[in-house]
Design a protein around this nucleic acid. Structure first.
Lengths: 328, 328
DNA sequence: ACGGCCTCTGTAACCGGTTACATGACGCAC
DNA sequence: GTGCGTCATGTAACCGGTTACAGAGGCCGT
């Protein structure tokens, strides 16, 4: 027996489908009708068909979220934040992960049309043209950490520059004079921004700054610093583009007998849970909050047709023991 | 200008809507027609309306996921696993979080009808009747870590008993004789199962076993052990119902001058990332894999109408340094 | 030349809701 | 009693796709 439809309920309650629809949606009907409809619906175990409703109303109460393959905390936290805000506002989240190339990405974006009222997209590896071509025209969209193709869309960016700058200023203020920056993958936009901003801040403050390459993994941080130490290079601070590499750096330093923070101050970026446990100075990103804000911005755009806007999500410097005792 | 519909494309290509539909879905049409349709669709920037398509096909290519408010790793990992499997199989995930009480839960489940082809539900705090009443009848469903109301649904359970038993056997095998178990919240089914199974295993092995209460937070583990030590109680092993509390316990022990693992062995449950860093012996749960399996089971049920089945997801004991050096 | 078959195409019904508009009943003022 | 406004209700069109069915034409064999 297939699921009951609104017509089944109407037949059973001896009224028209219009009356059933009105009764169930709280529109004006007589008490008698409402009672009969409710009774019939209960008897049949009627559950409205959300898909049909959406088609008719041109409104789905769902928001599409298109994310790339994210590792670790980032994926979970950003989804958690969006989910929190979505359920607060009465929306469902439709999740789609981008695994393949840009054609698959376009496919994924197109598949959202008619399913969602708005779109949140994070597609760092998509070209601008590809993105704007693939985005369904009629869908309000918010981009996260993605260069806006045309300037015609709202976007939220993590303020990597502010975070990196805060770290360098902190290091300079406690007396560090030779900073080594462990960079992330070159193609990663966050990594590049952190690197650029830290270099500029160091230059401005008259602090020496050199860079070594990493890949965001702990091991790469350890190797980078071990290599540097072996080469006899000297420095009194390490700023890694993320916490994982900073942790690797600390291990390499201690293995080589350098004291942290007395001889070398170390800072990371992200504030992963482990950072708190190890006392790592870092930049707290509040990823969940970033997700919440993206969703809030999207809903504003959807419901009030709000203008395009570009927000920066400011992170916060968290000073802990891997820098605080420097020079003592 | 509203989005183009299939009728717009038909008009532009000078063919019927049926031909457009056939051309775009790869059914038999002449080359000439196909070319004209593709051309017209491209010109109009036509994107099919997935909602309308679903309604007509009675198939959505989406899977509903209803989860309670989960903290920490669990939420992210299980969603990640389901997402991975879903995108592999060509499904989208529709996420809905249960915040409120059981009426809100019923609401959330009903909202899924007509939007998804199947449902994955994790609702530990819902009564059996509530659940089976709220689940739309026509929807294949898989439950995670939830008592099956009627036995009529597929379900996947984490095998807490096997994990807890493995821990106790390990502790006994290295020579521990007095185990303190730090339990989780009483209403949590995982916590209860871990507690029960560890007690039974200890009894069977002739090891002393006592329990203290915690709430899954690190602080509660620390307090529990600190209190115990202050009372002069003696024991040589701590098995916490999760890693967070185990870490708290270690801090309390070391603060009191007890050596871990030499004097007291400590084990947790979950294998959070921090556990590896601290060398905590624990039980690896592979939550993402649990999510993958739930999704795979659901798709099997949907596509092949597979029979009800009840799976156990076995965790794995990970022995590390908080137990390995015991007694030395 | 004709019937049969095959391929392509178009018309219109259908999926399951919502809602504009028409209809009918009723109350009230004149 | 008539005219008007109000209210509850029903009919049918509509949202944007898919597809059963019918019709049109081409090709074949006889």
């Amino acid at each position: 027996m297939p699921d009951a439809t609104i017509r089944d309920v109407a037949r059973r309650a001896q009224v028209s489908v219009a009356s059933v629809s009105r009764a169930l949606n709280g529109l004006a009907v007589s008490e008698a009708t409402k009672a009969r409809v409710n009774h019939a619906a209960l008897e049949l175990g009627y559950v409205p068909h959300a898909g049909a409703r959406s088609l008719s109303l041109a409104r789905t109460n769902a928001i599409g979220v298109v994310l790339p393959d994210l590792h670790g905390e980032f994926f979970s936290e950003i989804v958690r934040g969006m989910d929190r805000e979505a359920s607060r506002r009465g929306y469902l989240l439709l999740l789609s992960n981008l695994h393949g190339g840009s054609d698959q990405a376009a496919q994924a974006l197109r598949a959202m049309r008619g399913r969602v009222d708005g779109l949140i997209v994070m597609a760092p590896h998509l070209t601008s043209e590809g993105l704007s071509a693939a985005l369904p025209k009629g869908l309000p969209s918010v981009l996260i950490n993605t260069r806006d193709p045309s300037g015609g869309l709202s976007a939220i960016h993590l303020d990597n520059a502010a975070g990196a700058q805060a770290v360098v200023e902190h290091l300079a203020s406690i007396g560090c004079r030779r900073i080594v920056h462990i960079a992330g993958p070159a193609e990663n936009i966050d990594a590049r921004q952190r690197s650029d901003a830290s270099r500029q801040a160091a230059r401005r403050l008259g602090v020496e700054w050199t860079v070594v390459n990493g890949d965001f993994e702990e091991l790469s941080g350890e190797l980078a610093i071990a290599t540097l130490l072996a080469s006899g290079d000297s420095f009194d601070a390490v700023f890694a583009a993320n916490d994982n590499m900073a942790i690797g750096a600390i291990q390499a330093l201690r293995a080589a007998g350098r004291r942290v923070p007395e001889e070398v101050a170390v800072a990371g970026f992200d504030d992963i849970p482990l950072a708190g446990h190890l006392g790592l100075t870092t930049v707290r990103v509040r990823i969940a909050e970033l997700g919440e804000r993206a969703l809030a911005a999207l809903i504003a755009a959807m419901e009030q047709g709000l203008a395009v806007r570009d927000e920066l999500h400011a992170p916060e410097l968290i000073v802990r023991s891997t820098t605080l005792g420097f020079g003592q």
